[in-house]
Amino acid sequence: LCERFGRHRTILLICAVFIAGSLTCAFAPNAVGLALARVLLGFAVGGATQTVPMYVAELAPMAIRGRLVLCFQLAIGVGIVIAT
């Protein structure tokens, strides 16, 4: 998707998937609906984890590019640990 539509549009699509998954979780009528919504959110997290660091690396100045990508990856890791 990134190569075909660009990173910015792909990130916007991932945001829409996050919103749809969150709303589906909030209004899930039963456990199966909640599980399917969580799968949808899992795809959004996976897409964001792959797409956003590339986008940040493309936009960041060369002097701080590595630090910005590292901070993003660190924030993802810490968020996963806290959520667990």
Rank of each mutant, 00 (worst) to 15 (best):
L23Q: 07
V45H: 05
A16E: 10
M54W: 05
R65W: 08
V32H: 09
S22T: 14
A60M: 09
I14K: 10
L74A: 12
P53F: 06
R4A: 15
F18S: 04
A16M: 12
L59N: 04
H8M: 06
L12T: 07
G46Y: 03
P29S: 15
T24V: 02
L70E: 10
L36R: 04
A48K: 00
A63Q: 04
L12G: 04
L12C: 09
P61D: 14
R38V: 03
R38D: 09
L40G: 09
F43A: 12
I11R: 01
Q50A: 15
L34V: 00
I19W: 07
T51I: 08
A20L: 10
A60Q: 08
A26K: 01
S22C: 08
A75E: 01
G33P: 00
G66H: 00
F72Q: 01
A26N: 02
E3N: 13
C25R: 02
V56W: 06
A83H: 05
G46M: 10
A31V: 12
A57W: 01
A63C: 02
A20V: 04
F43S: 12
R9V: 12
P61M: 12
G6H: 12
R67K: 13
V52G: 00
L13A: 12
A28R: 00
Q73C: 07
N30H: 14
A28S: 10
P61G: 05
Y55G: 04
A20R: 00
G6T: 09
G47H: 00
A48M: 10
R7P: 07
L70T: 10
R7I: 01
I14P: 07
L74G: 06
I19M: 12
F27I: 05
F72W: 05
I64E: 04
A20F: 05
T24E: 05
P53G: 02
A37D: 05
V52A: 02
A44L: 02
G77A: 14
G42P: 06
C2A: 12
R67Q: 14
E58A: 11
P29R: 15
V78I: 13
A57L: 03
I11F: 00
V17K: 00
A35F: 11
R38E: 11
F5V: 11
G66L: 01
L12K: 09
G46N: 10
L1N: 14
G79R: 09
A31T: 07
L12R: 11
A26H: 04
G6K: 09
A60W: 03
H8A: 10
M62N: 04
A37I: 04
L40Q: 08
M62S: 06
L70G: 09
V81F: 15
L70D: 09
E58F: 06
V45M: 13
C2F: 03
E58P: 08
A60L: 05
A37K: 06
F72D: 00
A75S: 09
A28N: 02
I11P: 02
F5H: 12
R9A: 14
V39S: 08
G77T: 10
V17F: 02
